[in-house]
Every structure is written in C-alpha cells, then in structure tokens.
Design a protein around this nucleic acid. Structure first.
Lengths: 225, 225
DNA sequence: ATATGTCATATTGGATCCAATATACTATAA
DNA sequence: TTATAGTATATTGGATCCAATATGACATAT
C-alpha cells in the first residue's frame, strides 16, 4: 500500500536508539557546562528523566567514557571529567597544530557556499547578544571553515578535542576581552579565506587558538587565587 | 582479620569489569587483524565465549563504536569497521603531523631509561623472526619513544589513531621490504634520539611513517587488481 | 519463472530482577 | 572521646526476560 511505503521511507530517518538520544543529551549538557566537573551522574536519575531503564543510560555513559567526557569508577559511579590547567594548555597546543593544518587543506578547496555559510555564522556571532549562543555560533563558524578540507578523520579527532575543552572556551568567550578578540579574529580569518591566502589563514587560526588558550589559562589562574 | 585485609588489598588492583575484559579482547582481536573487516560480531557468540550475558558485551561494543573500530546498525548488528585506501592515506598523513611533533617534545626530555627501553624494543624487533610479534614490538618501540613527551592527550589521540590502522601496519610489515625498511628506520631514529638531535628525529619519524603509508597504499592497490 | 505476501526464526534493544560493592550510620569497647 | 565492628541503605554490575525488528523460507498469484 502506498501509505505504508510512505511510512517506511520516513522511518529510515529514525535510526536513533534510546541510548543515542541519551548520549546526545548528556554530551550536550557536559560541553555546555550545565553539569559541573566532578559532578557525579547517577544512572537512576538519568533513567527517570527519560522514562527509561538504566540499560540505555549505561550504554550512553560507556560512550562518554570512551570519549573522555566522564570518568567511571567501578561500583561507585561516573563523574564529569575534570581537567587540569596543564591539560587544557596541552589541548589548546594540539588544536593549534591540527586546526591550522586543517584550514590549510580547507582554504584550497573551499566552495563559495561554505564561505558564505562561514560568513553568515561570523556575522551572527558578532551580532549575537545572548552569551548562551556564543559558543554554538563560534563552533559553527570554525566547523564551516574546516568543512571542505576533505579530511574526515581530522574532523572527527578535532570534534572530540573541542568537546573536551568546550566548556572552557565558552567561559573564556564570556570575558569581555574574550568576545571582542574572537569577533575580530574571526573576521580577519574569514577575510584570508575569501582571498584564498592559505598561509595567512593558517597563521591567523594558530594565533587565534593560541591566544584564546593563553587568555583562558590566565583566567583560570586568576580565579584560583 | 589480616587475611581479609590482604585480600582487599589485592582486590584494589582488580578494577577491571567484565565489560573491560571483553573490550580489551575484542579490541585486540580487531587491531591484530584476527577479525576481518566487515565481519559481523554477534552479541550472543561473544557472550558465550566469555560465559557471560550480553549486557557487558553490549557495553564493550558501544566503547568500540565510540572509538570507530566497529560500526553498528540498529537491529542488525555491529561489524568490524572497514576503511578505504583514501582514509588510510589520511590517517597516515595525520600520524606524520602528530607523531613527528610528539617525538620533538619527547627527545628534549627523554630519560636514559626510556632510551634504553626503546633500544631494547628496537633490538628485539630487528631480531624477531615471528611475524606475529613484529606488530607488537613495532608499537612498543614507538610508544617508548613518545613516552617522555609530557603530552598525555597527544598520546591518547595517537593510540586511537594507531588502533584504526594497526591491522594494515602489520600487513605492511609482513612484506619483506616493509620489515627491512622498518628495521633500518628504527635504528637511525633511535640514533638521533641518543644524540638528542630533535630536528633529525622528527624528520626521520615523518619519513618513516610517510614511507610506510605509501608502501601500504601501493600494496593495497596491487592486491585489488 | 518471477514477484509478492505471509510466516518462522534469529538478533538486537530495552525492562526488570538479582548480586556485588560502597557508604553512611549506629553501637560498643578501650 | 575515639576507633572499630557491624548493619542498613544506596548504587552499580550483570543475568534473565520480553519487545521490536530484520532476515530468510515458503506459498501463491500472475
């Protein structure tokens, strides 16, 4: 019957299991900083929240653990991973290495479409007044820039890397200097991309990430005193 | 009681859950190439193998999926991930970028102990006649070299990266030219490390990985014709 | 012979139950 | 008062059961 065929076609899109949904929700809450680092995640409370059993929750937690977003201790529970200033510094150093390379590859083959998309995120980022959304737009902008690199593995790695420090990036953007600097950086990076200046785009990206990292480290040091 | 205290002290070391054991075993089988890519992994058969229920098996599979070693389709099952020559090429390119950087950091602060350890693996690798063990010793050698880099995150990423292509590295070593070239490369890299020649160690490492990747690509192309 | 529909079987996804362990609280002895 | 043993409770880890879906065999119509 035609109607059944129609339904089946729609169903093809619905490939997300309960464990997938829970994984996405927890990941989102963690990288947005809605859950504090060190906070323990109880299987039962998550299960109740989604009206499911603990089984899909546990599977989601295993995935988060494999990604390093939570840390699990047998018979005690999982906690949102905490991360030392030293590790943050290392991760930003890693980002400089990989993302500046990524943008090199990307600029060479960037389509007009991606450029325009990046520009729209860049503009929205600059105009946005709600700090909650700065992180989203920041991430979308960078993601759009790297999209045409033709390097899916790099992208996969960088996604995991950014997940680890996303909460701190957001905190850093909330500093007044953080946001003003990011706005300016994004505009000149985008300009270099439009001009197909590979070297400049890579160098600016390296500076952009490096300086954000340094500002973040300073911020964390100040706060701990 | 003393005896119970003793037992408890020993138990502290036993932090591995059933799911951990199964994860390790499956990961090992996959990276060694004992399971063919595309081969489906049945939960029940793994469970029977370890005399456990499917629950810990499923959790182990979720972790392998998060790492990209298996691919899962809802209600159908998981299969050992296959990887295209293009992706292999990309991953070797990524390894060149990250591992040459890693060895730079490592050489600067490498202890005598790590140098000697690397040397022992290098020697054992050169003398080993059993192809089964080449892969292990190759990995141990590189791992020893990077150990003192003081970059745990880089190491974590590279571990995941190498897991993805390990089966192919082993296949490549099995080629006569693969093993002879690797032997020679290892010795000159180690020599540069002993001499604290950072630049040379990094360049040689880049060449080593790059050439292995190229040889592998050629091998795969030949085989597919 | 081919295509389509129906049913039986296998397999995965999720829920519920039980076991193992940790933690907090209480009682007791020194 | 403090330290220790014991007990109750909470929580995780694993086993078993049921539901949802896929796959393949078989029958039937064209």
């Amino acid at each position: 019957m035609a109607s059944e065929l129609n339904l089946k076609a729609i169903d093809l899109g619905q490939t997300a299991s309960t464990s997938d949904v829970i994984y996405d929700a927890l990941r989102d809450a963690i990288i947005r900083g809605e859950m504090q680092e060190g906070e323990t995640i109880r299987q039962e409370s998550v299960a109740k929240l989604f009206n499911v059993s603990r089984i899909p929750v546990r599977e989601a937690l295993k995935r988060l653990e494999a990604q390093g977003l939570v840390t699990s201790v047998r018979y005690k529970g999982v906690v949102v991973s905490s991360i030392s200033p030293r590790e943050i510094e290392e991760i930003f150093e890693f980002r400089v290495l990989v993302e500046s390379k990524l943008i090199e590859y990307a600029v060479e083959s960037m389509t007009e479409q991606s450029l325009e998309l990046a520009k729209s995120y860049c503009d929205a980022f600059a105009k946005e007044t709600n700090p909650e959304k700065w992180g989203d737009l920041n991430r979308l902008f960078h993601s759009a820039l790297y999209q045409d690199s033709g390097r899916p593995y790099y992208l996969e790695v960088i996604r995991g890397t950014n997940d680890r420090v996303e909460r701190y990036v957001r905190a850093q953007l909330d500093l007044t200097e953080g946001m003003t600097r990011a706005r300016r950086d994004h505009e000149i990076i985008l300009d270099a991309c439009f001009k197909r200046d590979v070297r400049r785009a890579a160098d600016l990206t390296a500076d952009h990430i490096h300086s954000a990292g340094q500002a973040l480290i300073r911020f964390l040091q100040d706060r701990s005193r």
